[in-house]
Nucleic acid binder design. Structure first.
Lengths: 146, 146
DNA sequence: ATGTATGCAAAACATTTGCACCTGG
DNA sequence: CCAGGTGCAAATGTTTTGCATACAT
């Protein structure tokens, strides 16, 4: 059960925390915003406040349970921290996100940080592109400038 | 003069636009927020509104004149688009930003996008670390020229 | 002259916080 | 029982927008 995860974070096991964690587990690689989580839980019959969602997510982030990403738009999305670090490739048209890790890139980053006189911490690499999924609205189209 | 840049963007040449463009030119690699631009121009004796700063920056961004970045905190910083693409390495302590380009990483990104079935567009790579500057640890002024 | 830009104030956002009430351990 | 958690409303901080006026062309 995810009770343990919550306790391990030094938090009490409450309905909102359990529900949010469960929801994130069902999301897999899909990244959800606080607002989305809020609406999904409401729709699921939970009585929960948006403020609580934010509070819990912030606590989970501090505990390393979830990761927060600030993609291009002005809000954050969250995903369960499944251990391994990874970067993201996002479809600018349909928003689909895939994850990847590349050792060459990871290594070069360490070298660059060293070279620039920084002690490396985290990093964030996001590739923006267009996916070739049939369902993607932009399927086949080329870059149109106007 | 930078009149041309503004006209080329289909915008009228006005004082606020000129001033903002000039200011960005003096900034070089230093990334400024809308608020900072606003305060700097006020301090410089300009009569300008914060809303105008945002409007102009948005227009400049759309015209490809400036780039907007959303680093870790909840606001945007802007820099003049000097043509060449580059990535960023940011000090999490003092906020200092350095730019870099690494061909190996650029190349790997193209391969990854291809591999994952994306037609690559842009990307954003930000390395977070701690710089080894003497004046760094305690917030201080963050106005390091580098 | 005329369509744009502007400054200001107010709105719209995502997110945080104060507070009185609830609840898990 | 009580520290910690919650929902709600109000506060925050950033960015956007409505509107009447001012200005570039």
């Amino acid at each position: 059960m995810e009770d343990k995860e919550i306790r391990k974070a030094g938090l009490k096991v409450t309905a909102p925390r359990l529900k949010i964690l469960e929801l994130l587990e069902t999301c897999g690689e899909h990244h959800v915003s606080a607002e989305e989580i809020y609406r999904l839980l409401l729709a699921d019959g939970e009585e929960i406040g948006l403020a609580t969602v934010y509070r819990v997510l912030t606590q989970f982030e501090a505990a390393g349970l979830v990761e927060r990403h600030r993609f291009e738009d002005g809000y954050s999305v969250f995903e369960l921290n499944r251990g391994g670090h990874h970067d993201h490739i996002v479809c600018v048209t349909c928003g689909k996100v895939k994850e990847f890790v590349d050792d060459t890139i990871e290594q070069r980053q360490r070298e660059i940080a060293e070279d620039k006189g920084y002690e490396i911490g985290d990093h964030s690499l996001i590739i923006y592109g267009r996916c070739r999924d049939p369902g993607c609205p932009n399927h086949g189209k080329a870059d149109n400038k106007d």
